[in-house]
């Protein structure tokens, strides 16, 4: 639009303005807090390193022992399958909750009421003892003859009981998360898709769900981390996941503390990996939004250290999409 012969643009001074070089404000409070924390941390580290009862040698001995690694694998397996079950049930319940059919809505509400209202440990025990309630599980016509029958004791192994207990319970929590996500997407999105002739399922899958993901992912990450830790409850069913594996070992050698440290180290490793994964998934689903995802805690700490060294921090370039 602008013509070459127009009068010169206003402002835009010929010489670059002088940068302000001022003495920064002194902040003694920050300094004192920092020093105090460092002193306390040093004392902690010293005690951890020098107290022989931590048994760091034993920790190292068992950290990669086959029994522990096998338990670790089972913990991962349980977490993944239980979360998949939970998310599937959650999506189904959330869609049911938004249905125009009142019976469907009530069924979904009842499920959530039941499974969110009782402790997951109780539910796990219930599934474990389900054979006492229903000795035989039969598939067939309702109120009619059975076609296949199973002995519940053989069908419900500790692993299956664990999956049922964890997955069904998780479904109740996930449904609320998914529902909040679906409701967070502007109605105009659905209308625009409708106006283009898109079908209901297409609209849900291509337009609504991907945008709901931005709201669904962060709490789902938390749920996954929570699930990883909740799997330790399965130890009461004598299923050899990570915690029960170390319990078996310390029942034999009485080195409880070092072995609990072994379990804790592995839980921390896994939750750390999950947190990092969550960051990248969030960034993926955040594409197209003006507000970029805030940097992780580690990135923030790193940045503030670099502000100590240089006065000017280059703002990391935010890339949209790709």
């Amino acid at each position: 639009m602008a013509d070459a012969e127009q009068p010169p643009e206003p402002a835009a001074a010929a010489v670059a303005p002088e940068e302000i070089k001022a003495v920064p404000v002194r902040r003694p409070g920050r300094l004192i807090a920092g020093v105090l924390i460092i002193i306390v941390a040093a004392a902690l580290v010293r005690s951890v390193a020098t107290n022989p009862r931590f048994g760091w040698g034993t920790v190292g001995e068992y950290l990669f022992s086959p029994v522990v690694l096998d338990g670790l694998l089972k913990t991962i397996e349980l977490t993944i399958i239980a979360m998949v079950v939970g998310i599937l049930i959650g999506v189904i319940l959330a869609v049911m909750r938004l249905s125009p059919n009142p019976i469907v809505v009530a069924a979904s509400g009842f499920y959530i009421w039941l499974f969110r209202g009782t402790p997951v440990l109780v539910q796990l025990l219930f599934w474990n003892f389900i054979a006492a309630l229903y000795p035989v599980v039969a598939l067939g016509i309702p109120f009619g003859p059975a076609l296949v029958e199973f002995n519940a004791n053989n069908l419900i192994t500790p692993f299956v009981a664990a999956l049922l207990g964890l997955g069904l319970n998780e479904g109740a929590y996930m449904s609320e998360i998914v529902r909040a996500g679906l409701l967070s997407v502007d109605e105009g999105q659905e209308e625009a898709a409708k106006a283009l002739g898109m079908r209901r399922m297409q609209t849900m899958r291509r337009i609504i769900l991907p945008q709901a993901m931005r709201v669904i992912i962060p709490p789902t990450g938390n749920e996954t981390i929570g699930m990883l830790k909740t799997t330790s409850l399965v130890s009461v069913l004598a299923y050899t996941e990570l915690l029960y594996a170390v319990q078996l070992i310390y029942a034999a050698n009485y080195k409880q503390i070092p072995l609990l440290i072994v379990a804790s180290i592995w839980y921390l490793v896994l939750t750390t990996i999950l947190s990092i994964g969550q960051y990248f998934i969030e960034r993926h689903y955040g594409r197209g939004t003006a507000r970029a995802i805030p940097p992780t805690l580690l990135m923030r700490i790193w940045q503030s250290f670099s502000t100590w060294r240089h006065t000017e921090v280059p703002v990391p370039e935010q890339r949209h999409g790709l």
């Binding site: 209308e191 106006a195 079908r199 999409g321």
Partner: peptide, 21 residues
């Protein structure tokens, strides 16, 4: 939906799909 394919609509608040280019 089939009928709507033939009718284009433009909204006051654009309603572009935010997660797509």
């Amino acid at each position: 939906a089939g009928e709507r394919e033939q009718i284009g609509m433009v909204f006051q608040r654009f309603n572009l799909f935010g997660h797509m280019t």
